[in-house]
């Protein structure tokens, strides 16, 4: 996994609750057999009209948000399907983190497996960031995972929570499977005590 580095980036506001994974990456992009290149399908039906042209109103199509690396959105972001393609698409497009009041469980898990940071903050704080991104052109945030802080140049400085286990893995970009296989002894012991209920193929 890629390690998560502290960074400062442009913020794009997506002022909606319940942004679901079908919106983040529609089904026609799920036919890929690789993890790369999915940025082209990110928010596809919000970004592009039926004729394939960009919909100028949509936030990511506005010149001032080009190159954004932080997305700020409403509550329950990433609800719906388990498709990890949603994270791959956000990542491939150029985002490194999403800030929202809350995340759907599977989506959040998928972020943490891809060196991508989901930052949950109080709704009122998210609102301030959202307003900042809407009102100030070029609004940027600094994200410091080690210190667990997001900050802007206008006095906002908020700490966020993350389980120490996931924080460590993100900072070091550790390979999950490698770590688990270090527990092979325990897994074998479990398997001896609990044999498979199914016939061997």
């Amino acid at each position: 996994m890629r390690a998560f580095r502290n960074f400062t980036g442009l913020v794009a506001p997506l002022d909606k609750n319940n942004v679901d994974t079908d919106q983040i990456i529609p089904k026609q992009f799920l036919k890929a057999v690789v993890r790369t290149g999915l940025g082209a399908g990110l928010f596809f039906s919000w970004r592009f009209g039926a004729d394939g042209a960009e919909i100028p109103d949509f936030v990511l199509n506005q010149a001032r948000y080009r190159g954004a690396s932080i997305l700020v959105a409403g509550a329950n972001f990433g609800c719906g399907s388990s498709r990890e393609h949603a994270v791959w698409a956000l990542d491939d497009y150029g985002f490194r983190a999403v800030i929202a009041p809350s995340f759907a469980d599977i989506f959040r898990n998928n972020c943490l497996k891809n060196g991508f940071l989901p930052v949950a903050l109080e709704a009122s704080v998210v609102r301030r960031i959202m307003d900042g991104a809407i009102e100030r052109e070029g609004y940027r945030l600094a994200i410091d995972l080690e210190g667990q802080v997001v900050a802007d140049e206008h006095g906002l400085r908020e700490s966020f929570g993350i389980e120490p286990f996931y924080k460590q893995r993100l900072l070091e970009g550790l390979d999950d499977i490698g770590l688990t296989l270090a527990h092979s002894k325990e897994i074998e012991a479990y398997e001896r005590a609990h044999p498979s209920p199914y016939p061997t193929p």
């Binding site: 993890r35 599977i106 898990n109 891809n114 527990h183 897994i187």
Partner: peptide, 30 residues
């Protein structure tokens, strides 16, 4: 697949996972 919760009807703990976790379970069964 997120609708793995269906199997919970049998008194199982069944949940959906993403592709990284699919790979993890394939490799470790955990």
């Amino acid at each position: 697949d997120s609708h793995t919760s269906t199997h919970g009807a049998f008194g199982a703990l069944a949940f959906g996972v993403g592709t990284s976790e699919v790979e993890h379970v394939l490799a470790t069964q955990c």
